[in-house]
Design a protein around this nucleic acid. Sequence first.
DNA 1: CCGCCGATTTGACCATCGTCAATCCCGACC
DNA 2: GGTCGGGATTGACGATGGTCAAATCGGCGG
Lengths: 242, 242
Amino acid sequence: MGAVLTDLPNPPCPLRPEEVAVVAQVPLFAGLPAESLPAILSDARVVRHPRGRALFRQGDDARALHVLLEGQVGLTGSVEGGETVVEILDAGEAFIIAAVLTGKPFLMGATALTPCRVLELPREPLLNAIMGTPHLALSMLTSLARHFRMLVREVKALKLQTASQRLAAYLLGLTPRQRGSAILKLPHSKGVIARRIGVRAETLSRVFTSLRDQGVVVDGNTVAIVDLARLGRFCHQGADMD
Amino acid sequence: MGAVLTDLPNPPCPLRPEEVAVVAQVPLFAGLPAESLPAILSDARVVRHPRGRALFRQGDDARALHVLLEGQVGLTGSVEGGETVVEILDAGEAFIIAAVLTGKPFLMGATALTPCRVLELPREPLLNAIMGTPHLALSMLTSLARHFRMLVREVKALKLQTASQRLAAYLLGLTPRQRGSAILKLPHSKGVIARRIGVRAETLSRVFTSLRDQGVVVDGNTVAIVDLARLGRFCHQGADMD
DNA sequence: CCGCCGATTTGACCATCGTCAATCCCGACC
DNA sequence: GGTCGGGATTGACGATGGTCAAATCGGCGG
């Protein structure tokens, strides 16, 4: 995972009108009274990042709310040299709401997993907008609440489930289907998935092969699941191998 | 951990005037315009729970925001029979904000660790109050953000630190001091702490003795730490900021 | 003072997962 | 086609923490 080309901020652009229209579609702003958007976005800017670039680092001051317009971003936490992926974001999601609100340094860093485009909303105008726009406040609350619940799930999984079960749960999360079989593409490199699941890459590899017993077949970044319901049973129930 | 005496809801009381005054001191409501409080609290009620009682269970529908007025509450998550303590709350804290906002079932259950008194704010009036009271919205956002950041820390700790380091971090969190030595009382039973840390009770016991090498001495529920800075170094939370 | 019950501790043993190192695979680039 | 390099896999081994069982401690009612 080269975090090599991480510097050299490319020129941020102020918002162009057609971009405002796009931003209005983002869940966080959807349903907002149209006239309140311009005020919120007045100080915003859009930044592009190449793959591998660090958008910001753990410990930096949170000066702006970020909204991912395009691409994938990984939120990573590091302690004493080790690094883990706490969350992986797709287009449309707002991130680091918590750090911006508390005004404290980031607990996580952000890395562009693909080339991406990010909207940055400076803290001060944002807080004003929240106070003046109840609907925005509620949107941010529900957004934060959704991420909160993801983290709760993750804490429970880390404490109570094995690596195999966490991987199974992760795979199940990649498809909307609940029953029958599925064939899917892994949306990230296995190294990233490993840190997302909370294991080493070597362990992920072994866990994948051990899931063959549960009807999971891997080939490159393609995964075939024979019986989704069965896999679901595996990760919520029995710790026993069958 | 007997979850035995968990039924028989005791009679909930509507709010008495002197209780309103107390509630106004809670961080969530502090700084709120005085006249907006009564509306928020109109449908609220106060419920008492004996030690060990389940306030609600994982999977229940989230019908009301809870605010802990007095006592201690443990938020527990369970998967396939295993149970863990995700968070431990003290008086003054609001909990399950996320579930109430998303309107989805609880991901955690709540158990009274001590006899306690809880304020319950029904969902609908609360949402209205949020839309009508920007300051309340901001309070809830910052409260949720604070808990969010706790969870982020926990996820990082679970993925990157050993049980000894997590216990060390937990102990350090029990004292405001950063340097020198400290003697402190464990605020919960060791069984609860074990599940909070994410290990079995047996392991906690062993981890405690292994921390003797780091200048930690345990006697009953009293813990002596010879050198706080040294213990901090041991769990390398230089990256962990607050 | 005694006996009981739950919490805690200790020991023996084992499963899971991390570490280190070698190898393999596959696409980018000559 | 050949080679280079990073990701992925495999093997060997060890450490961390879980499991099961027994022993001990401690408070509390009789």
